[in-house]
Computed example of a mutant assay.
Amino acid sequence: MDKKLMSKKKPAYPINKQLSDYLTEHSRNIKIPIYYEDLLRFQGAVEIYDKHGNETLWISTYFAEHEREEIEMSLKRVYTILHADGSDEALQYITIDAIDFCTFGNTKPFRIKVRNILNDNYVYLYIKKADASRIYGLELEHLLSPNHINFLVHGDTIIEEHISGIPGDTFINENLDSCSDQDKMAIAKEFVKFNERCFIRLLGDMRSYNYVFVLTHDFDRIDYRIRAIDFDQQSFEGNSKVYKPQFLKENNELVEMTLNLLQEESMEQYKNEERSLLAKRASSEYDRLSSLLDCMKNDTLSTPAKIKELKVELFSLTKDVRFRRAKNMGDIVSSALDFVKRNYENINPYIIR
């Protein structure tokens, strides 16, 4: 099914001046001491396997001795820029344990393991080739989801903070069956809300390995949240099903569980809850969101054929003439958010106006 829904390879779109200015205004666009291309100079690598001995599509790289020290110092500076104030004070206490390279996907990221030598605490960060689609996806996630996103851009390089959680495919294969009935009910609810959130803001390709499960222990239960970790397919495809995780075969087990556990009325309730929450977030971030959408409207993020296909499908679904008038993906995303705000922001009769 996925091959029919999505293109084999999405092209990378450059960052134009308007988007670059937006990133500068919101402290995303900064000077960095190393670029993606610098890390491509690794001399060799070894395969990385998971705990079961399976290939992970990641390789551990190593660099020539005359370059390694400079590269590691630059990466330590990147860490302080992303997580602190960029000063040199903490450099003496951190070290680079690993520079891994992913051989799969569009962005082919580097994963950097940064460890504090005083207590062995460590974090990961990612360095990738910048793509306008991904930046729009990250910003929309930051503004419209319950999740904070930390990333920086300079030129054609993007640096992202690691999003912690259990990979969706791992959770489905290794953890889902052992969950209690009540936990499965909570997971089903979260999947419905995640599915709706992706569809409204047009984030595509949420196959199980492109999101994580975040588990939080509350005083009487475990709280489950699903977070996207891949944003390359923001507003690119023309088939509207791409933007609904329920139609991707890797999620079939979650879909079947949800259909078995939740009644139609409950699913509709959770969809309405997510629409209302998203409408509130869109209103509270109105100025910044409007500026971002203006960038999208003046950018090229897809092909004319895909734009036409998507706006026709969404007009057929909503009967909102704004979709039919849309000229690009920015117009379509803006129309989708306006539709949600008009129909779900003001349904609470207890709000004082």
Rank of each mutant, 00 (worst) to 15 (best):
H83T: 10
N116V: 07
E67D: 14
V46N: 14
G105C: 08
I32P: 01
I166D: 05
Y126M: 03
K113T: 15
K76W: 09
K31T: 14
H52K: 14
N116Y: 08
I48Y: 10
E55A: 14
R134V: 01
H66Q: 15
I159S: 02
K129F: 08
I117C: 13
G105A: 12
I112E: 03
N147V: 11
L152Y: 00
I59W: 05
G86W: 00
I59V: 14
A132T: 00
E141P: 02
R41I: 05
T56D: 10
L125Q: 07
L75Y: 06
S60Y: 09
E89M: 06
V114T: 12
G165E: 07
H162G: 00
Y126R: 00
I166W: 10
H154D: 11
N54E: 15
Y93H: 14
G44P: 04
H66E: 15
I163P: 00
Q43S: 15
Y49L: 13
V46T: 15
T61F: 12
L144Q: 03
R77H: 12
A98M: 10
K31L: 11
T56K: 08
I149N: 04
I48C: 07
K128C: 01
K129V: 00
N116M: 10
I166M: 11
S60F: 04
K76Q: 05
E55S: 15
G86M: 03
L125R: 01
R41Y: 11
E55L: 11
S87K: 10
I30D: 01
N121P: 00
A98R: 13
R134N: 06
S27G: 02
R134F: 01
S164G: 11
L140F: 05
L91E: 08
D97W: 13
F151W: 03
A132I: 00
F104D: 09
I166R: 09
